[in-house]
Design a protein around this nucleic acid. Sequence first.
DNA 1: AATGCGGGGGC
DNA 2: GCCCCAGCATT
Length: 308
Amino acid sequence: MIEQIRSDLLHWFHSYARDLPWRRTRDPYAIMVAEVMLQQTQVDRVIPKYQAFLSAFPTVAALAAAPTAEVIRLWAGLGYNRRAVNLQRAAQVIMEQYGGQVPSAVADLRALPGIGPYTAGAIACFAFEQDVAFLDTNIRRVVRRLCVGPDDRSTPSDGELLAHATALIPPGQGWTWNQAIMELGALICTSTNPACWRCPLRSYCRSYATAVADDTALAATMMSPPLKRVAESRTAEPFVGSRRWYRGKIVAVLRELPAGEVLPLPILGERIRADFTPDHEPWLQGLVADLARDGLLVMTEEGVRLPQ
DNA sequence: AATGCGGGGGC
DNA sequence: GCCCCAGCATT
Protein backbone atom coordinates (compact mmCIF):
# COMPACT_ATOMS: atom_id res chain seq x y z
CA MET A 1 0.00 0.00 0.00
CA ILE A 2 2.62 2.52 1.02
CA GLU A 3 4.74 1.45 -1.93
CA GLN A 4 1.82 2.19 -4.22
CA ILE A 5 1.28 5.60 -2.66
CA ARG A 6 4.92 6.48 -3.11
CA SER A 7 5.08 5.18 -6.65
CA ASP A 8 1.88 6.87 -7.79
CA LEU A 9 2.73 10.26 -6.35
CA LEU A 10 6.28 10.20 -7.71
CA HIS A 11 5.01 9.30 -11.16
CA TRP A 12 2.46 12.07 -11.00
CA PHE A 13 5.16 14.53 -9.94
CA HIS A 14 7.42 13.63 -12.82
CA SER A 15 4.59 14.40 -15.23
CA TYR A 16 3.04 17.48 -13.69
CA ALA A 17 5.68 19.25 -11.58
CA ARG A 18 6.08 22.96 -12.24
CA ASP A 19 9.49 24.18 -13.26
CA LEU A 20 10.32 26.36 -10.24
CA PRO A 21 13.70 28.10 -10.06
CA TRP A 22 14.62 26.75 -6.61
CA ARG A 23 14.11 23.21 -7.89
CA ARG A 24 17.00 23.71 -10.30
CA THR A 25 19.65 24.25 -7.63
CA ARG A 26 21.08 22.60 -4.54
CA ASP A 27 22.96 25.72 -3.49
CA PRO A 28 22.12 25.84 0.23
CA TYR A 29 22.16 29.63 0.29
CA ALA A 30 19.78 29.92 -2.66
CA ILE A 31 17.49 27.32 -1.08
CA MET A 32 17.54 29.20 2.21
CA VAL A 33 16.57 32.44 0.46
CA ALA A 34 13.73 30.71 -1.38
CA GLU A 35 12.36 28.97 1.70
CA VAL A 36 12.32 32.16 3.76
CA MET A 37 10.61 34.06 0.96
CA LEU A 38 8.05 31.28 0.68
CA GLN A 39 7.01 31.59 4.32
CA GLN A 40 3.36 32.63 4.00
CA THR A 41 3.95 33.99 0.50
CA GLN A 42 2.68 32.41 -2.70
CA VAL A 43 4.99 30.85 -5.24
CA ASP A 44 3.95 33.14 -8.07
CA ARG A 45 4.81 36.22 -6.10
CA VAL A 46 8.17 34.88 -4.91
CA ILE A 47 9.59 33.86 -8.29
CA PRO A 48 10.57 37.31 -9.64
CA LYS A 49 11.77 38.53 -6.23
CA TYR A 50 13.88 35.44 -5.76
CA GLN A 51 15.79 36.04 -8.98
CA ALA A 52 16.35 39.72 -8.23
CA PHE A 53 17.45 39.05 -4.65
CA LEU A 54 20.01 36.43 -5.66
CA SER A 55 21.38 38.72 -8.36
CA ALA A 56 21.87 41.48 -5.80
CA PHE A 57 23.19 39.16 -3.05
CA PRO A 58 24.61 36.05 -4.75
CA THR A 59 26.30 34.55 -1.69
CA VAL A 60 26.02 34.36 2.07
CA ALA A 61 28.98 36.73 2.30
CA ALA A 62 27.35 39.27 -0.01
CA LEU A 63 24.12 39.27 1.95
CA ALA A 64 25.89 39.43 5.30
CA ALA A 65 27.92 42.47 4.20
CA ALA A 66 25.14 44.35 2.41
CA PRO A 67 23.52 47.50 3.80
CA THR A 68 20.35 46.37 5.57
CA ALA A 69 18.50 49.13 3.75
CA GLU A 70 19.29 47.43 0.44
CA VAL A 71 18.05 44.09 1.76
CA ILE A 72 14.80 45.70 2.88
CA ARG A 73 14.43 47.40 -0.50
CA LEU A 74 14.85 44.13 -2.36
CA TRP A 75 12.19 42.64 -0.12
CA ALA A 76 9.53 45.03 -1.38
CA GLY A 77 6.37 43.23 -2.44
CA LEU A 78 6.95 40.16 -0.30
CA GLY A 79 5.49 41.36 2.99
CA TYR A 80 6.52 40.37 6.51
CA ASN A 81 9.56 42.63 6.28
CA ARG A 82 11.09 41.25 9.46
CA ARG A 83 11.95 38.19 7.41
CA ALA A 84 14.41 40.29 5.40
CA VAL A 85 16.17 41.47 8.54
CA ASN A 86 16.26 37.98 10.01
CA LEU A 87 17.55 36.49 6.78
CA GLN A 88 20.46 38.91 6.76
CA ARG A 89 21.13 38.19 10.43
CA ALA A 90 21.13 34.49 9.63
CA ALA A 91 23.70 35.14 6.90
CA GLN A 92 25.84 37.03 9.40
CA VAL A 93 25.65 34.16 11.89
CA ILE A 94 26.59 31.73 9.13
CA MET A 95 29.63 33.86 8.34
CA GLU A 96 30.70 34.05 11.97
CA GLN A 97 29.92 30.55 13.15
CA TYR A 98 30.07 28.37 10.04
CA GLY A 99 32.69 30.05 7.85
CA GLY A 100 30.07 31.11 5.35
CA GLN A 101 28.76 27.58 4.74
CA VAL A 102 25.07 27.05 5.48
CA PRO A 103 24.92 24.32 8.13
CA SER A 104 23.25 21.06 7.13
CA ALA A 105 22.06 19.81 10.51
CA VAL A 106 18.41 20.56 11.28
CA ALA A 107 19.27 21.59 14.83
CA ASP A 108 21.87 24.08 13.61
CA LEU A 109 19.53 25.50 11.00
CA ARG A 110 16.73 25.76 13.54
CA ALA A 111 18.89 28.02 15.71
CA LEU A 112 19.25 30.65 12.97
CA PRO A 113 17.02 33.72 13.22
CA GLY A 114 13.83 33.37 11.20
CA ILE A 115 14.38 29.65 10.64
CA GLY A 116 11.66 27.56 12.28
CA PRO A 117 10.81 23.88 12.12
CA TYR A 118 9.48 24.01 8.58
CA THR A 119 12.33 25.99 7.04
CA ALA A 120 15.04 24.02 8.85
CA GLY A 121 13.63 20.76 7.51
CA ALA A 122 13.13 22.17 4.04
CA ILE A 123 16.74 23.37 3.80
CA ALA A 124 18.09 20.06 5.11
CA CYS A 125 16.00 18.22 2.53
CA PHE A 126 16.10 20.49 -0.52
CA ALA A 127 19.71 21.65 -0.22
CA PHE A 128 21.37 18.65 1.41
CA GLU A 129 18.98 15.93 0.21
CA GLN A 130 18.32 14.52 3.66
CA ASP A 131 15.29 12.26 4.16
CA VAL A 132 13.68 14.49 6.77
CA ALA A 133 9.98 15.20 7.19
CA PHE A 134 8.51 18.64 7.85
CA LEU A 135 5.11 20.28 7.67
CA ASP A 136 4.05 23.25 5.66
CA THR A 137 0.47 24.18 4.89
CA ASN A 138 0.41 21.86 1.86
CA ILE A 139 2.00 18.81 3.43
CA ARG A 140 -0.10 19.26 6.56
CA ARG A 141 -3.30 19.25 4.55
CA VAL A 142 -2.37 16.36 2.25
CA VAL A 143 -1.20 14.14 5.08
CA ARG A 144 -4.25 14.95 7.17
CA ARG A 145 -6.66 14.08 4.38
CA LEU A 146 -4.70 11.05 3.19
CA CYS A 147 -3.88 9.46 6.55
CA VAL A 148 -6.44 10.85 9.01
CA GLY A 149 -9.70 11.85 7.37
CA PRO A 150 -11.95 14.75 6.41
CA ASP A 151 -10.96 18.21 7.49
CA ASP A 152 -13.91 18.80 9.79
CA ARG A 153 -13.94 15.51 11.73
CA SER A 154 -10.74 15.63 13.69
CA THR A 155 -7.85 17.94 14.41
CA PRO A 156 -4.68 15.85 14.55
CA SER A 157 -1.63 17.36 16.19
CA ASP A 158 1.45 18.30 14.25
CA GLY A 159 3.27 15.51 16.04
CA GLU A 160 0.83 12.97 14.69
CA LEU A 161 0.98 14.40 11.18
CA LEU A 162 4.76 14.52 11.28
CA ALA A 163 4.85 10.83 12.17
CA HIS A 164 2.71 10.05 9.13
CA ALA A 165 4.82 12.33 6.94
CA THR A 166 7.99 10.60 8.11
CA ALA A 167 6.63 7.14 7.43
CA LEU A 168 5.63 8.10 3.89
CA ILE A 169 9.09 9.20 2.73
CA PRO A 170 10.67 6.70 0.33
CA PRO A 171 14.17 6.06 1.69
CA GLY A 172 16.76 7.88 -0.37
CA GLN A 173 14.18 9.99 -2.18
CA GLY A 174 13.30 12.60 0.41
CA TRP A 175 13.99 15.51 -1.94
CA THR A 176 11.65 14.33 -4.65
CA TRP A 177 9.04 13.07 -2.23
CA ASN A 178 8.74 16.29 -0.27
CA GLN A 179 8.64 18.35 -3.45
CA ALA A 180 5.97 16.02 -4.78
CA ILE A 181 3.70 16.08 -1.75
CA MET A 182 3.92 19.86 -1.57
CA GLU A 183 3.14 20.07 -5.27
CA LEU A 184 0.11 17.85 -4.80
CA GLY A 185 -1.16 20.15 -2.09
CA ALA A 186 -0.58 23.20 -4.25
CA LEU A 187 -2.09 21.89 -7.49
CA ILE A 188 -4.61 19.15 -6.61
CA CYS A 189 -5.30 18.74 -2.88
CA THR A 190 -6.07 22.41 -2.40
CA SER A 191 -7.66 23.91 0.66
CA THR A 192 -10.99 24.56 -1.02
CA ASN A 193 -12.35 22.61 -3.97
CA PRO A 194 -9.66 19.95 -4.19
CA ALA A 195 -9.53 18.26 -7.59
CA CYS A 196 -9.89 14.71 -6.29
CA TRP A 197 -10.99 13.51 -9.72
CA ARG A 198 -7.45 13.96 -10.97
CA CYS A 199 -5.62 13.08 -7.76
CA PRO A 200 -3.15 10.21 -8.06
CA LEU A 201 -3.77 9.25 -4.43
CA ARG A 202 -7.56 9.23 -4.23
CA SER A 203 -7.80 5.46 -4.01
CA TYR A 204 -5.63 5.54 -0.87
CA CYS A 205 -7.17 8.63 0.67
CA ARG A 206 -9.16 8.31 3.91
CA SER A 207 -10.83 11.61 3.32
CA TYR A 208 -11.92 10.68 -0.17
CA ALA A 209 -13.18 7.30 1.01
CA THR A 210 -15.25 8.97 3.71
CA ALA A 211 -16.70 11.42 1.24
CA VAL A 212 -17.70 8.58 -1.08
CA ALA A 213 -19.20 6.57 1.75
CA ASP A 214 -21.18 9.54 2.99
CA ASP A 215 -22.23 10.37 -0.57
CA THR A 216 -21.59 14.01 0.17
CA ALA A 217 -21.80 16.43 -2.73
CA LEU A 218 -18.95 14.67 -4.37
CA ALA A 219 -19.81 15.42 -7.95
CA ALA A 220 -19.64 19.15 -7.44
CA THR A 221 -16.53 19.71 -5.40
CA MET A 222 -15.32 16.20 -4.59
CA MET A 223 -14.86 17.31 -1.01
CA SER A 224 -16.53 19.76 1.27
CA PRO A 225 -14.58 22.77 2.44
CA PRO A 226 -13.65 23.06 6.10
CA LEU A 227 -16.54 24.10 8.30
CA LYS A 228 -14.76 26.11 10.91
CA ARG A 229 -15.77 29.51 9.56
CA VAL A 230 -18.98 29.33 11.54
CA ALA A 231 -17.27 29.36 14.91
CA GLU A 232 -15.88 32.85 14.79
CA SER A 233 -16.50 35.64 12.39
CA ARG A 234 -12.78 36.25 12.46
CA THR A 235 -11.15 39.44 13.64
CA ALA A 236 -13.27 41.41 11.19
CA GLU A 237 -10.50 43.96 11.35
CA PRO A 238 -10.42 45.91 8.12
CA PHE A 239 -6.88 45.73 6.93
CA VAL A 240 -6.72 49.22 5.51
CA GLY A 241 -6.06 51.59 8.41
CA SER A 242 -4.84 48.79 10.67
CA ARG A 243 -1.62 48.89 12.56
CA ARG A 244 -0.10 46.38 10.17
CA TRP A 245 -1.14 48.49 7.25
CA TYR A 246 0.54 51.61 8.63
CA ARG A 247 3.69 49.67 9.45
CA GLY A 248 3.82 48.59 5.84
CA LYS A 249 3.26 52.16 4.69
CA ILE A 250 6.11 53.47 6.83
CA VAL A 251 8.59 50.93 5.48
CA ALA A 252 7.37 51.61 1.94
CA VAL A 253 7.93 55.34 2.34
CA LEU A 254 11.43 54.84 3.76
CA ARG A 255 12.32 52.47 0.92
CA GLU A 256 11.72 55.21 -1.62
CA LEU A 257 14.15 57.58 0.06
CA PRO A 258 17.69 58.03 -1.32
CA ALA A 259 20.20 55.94 0.60
CA GLY A 260 21.01 57.40 4.00
CA GLU A 261 18.39 60.12 3.91
CA VAL A 262 16.59 60.78 7.17
CA LEU A 263 12.89 61.62 7.27
CA PRO A 264 11.57 63.86 10.08
CA LEU A 265 8.66 62.27 11.91
CA PRO A 266 6.06 64.91 10.99
CA ILE A 267 6.93 64.52 7.31
CA LEU A 268 6.67 60.76 7.62
CA GLY A 269 3.27 61.24 9.25
CA GLU A 270 2.02 63.33 6.36
CA ARG A 271 3.21 60.76 3.86
CA ILE A 272 1.45 57.82 5.45
CA ARG A 273 -1.88 59.53 6.16
CA ALA A 274 -3.43 62.61 4.66
CA ASP A 275 -5.21 63.60 7.87
CA PHE A 276 -2.02 63.60 9.95
CA THR A 277 -1.95 66.16 12.76
CA PRO A 278 0.44 66.75 15.67
CA ASP A 279 -2.03 64.82 17.81
CA HIS A 280 -1.03 61.72 15.89
CA GLU A 281 2.63 62.01 16.84
CA PRO A 282 2.52 59.76 19.92
CA TRP A 283 0.79 57.12 17.83
CA LEU A 284 3.46 57.44 15.15
CA GLN A 285 6.20 57.33 17.78
CA GLY A 286 4.84 54.02 18.96
CA LEU A 287 4.79 52.49 15.51
CA VAL A 288 8.28 53.74 14.77
CA ALA A 289 9.64 52.46 18.05
CA ASP A 290 8.29 48.98 17.34
CA LEU A 291 9.73 49.02 13.82
CA ALA A 292 13.08 50.05 15.29
CA ARG A 293 12.86 47.16 17.74
CA ASP A 294 12.29 44.86 14.77
CA GLY A 295 15.41 46.22 13.08
CA LEU A 296 13.40 47.70 10.23
CA LEU A 297 14.39 51.31 10.81
CA VAL A 298 16.69 53.53 12.84
CA MET A 299 15.66 56.53 14.92
CA THR A 300 17.96 59.56 14.97
CA GLU A 301 17.72 63.07 16.33
CA GLU A 302 16.41 64.36 13.01
CA GLY A 303 14.02 61.56 12.19
CA VAL A 304 13.97 57.99 10.89
CA ARG A 305 15.68 56.03 8.09
CA LEU A 306 16.31 52.48 7.03
CA PRO A 307 19.18 50.72 8.87
CA GLN A 308 22.50 50.75 7.04
C1' DA B 1 -2.63 28.51 22.92
C1' DA B 2 -3.00 33.05 21.05
C1' DT B 3 -1.19 37.24 18.62
C1' DG B 4 1.18 40.13 15.52
C1' DC B 5 3.28 40.40 11.32
C1' DG B 6 2.19 42.31 4.56
C1' DG B 7 0.21 42.16 0.88
C1' DG B 8 -1.74 40.34 -3.27
C1' DG B 9 -5.13 37.39 -5.46
C1' DG B 10 -9.25 34.39 -5.66
C1' DC B 11 -13.94 33.85 -5.32
C1' DG C 1 -15.76 41.08 2.22
C1' DC C 2 -13.37 37.03 3.63
C1' DC C 3 -10.06 33.40 2.92
C1' DC C 4 -5.72 31.74 1.54
C1' DC C 5 -0.87 31.60 1.16
C1' DA C 6 6.32 26.63 1.06
C1' DG C 7 5.65 30.24 9.06
C1' DC C 8 8.15 32.44 12.86
C1' DA C 9 8.76 34.75 17.25
C1' DT C 10 6.87 36.28 21.30
C1' DT C 11 3.84 36.18 25.17
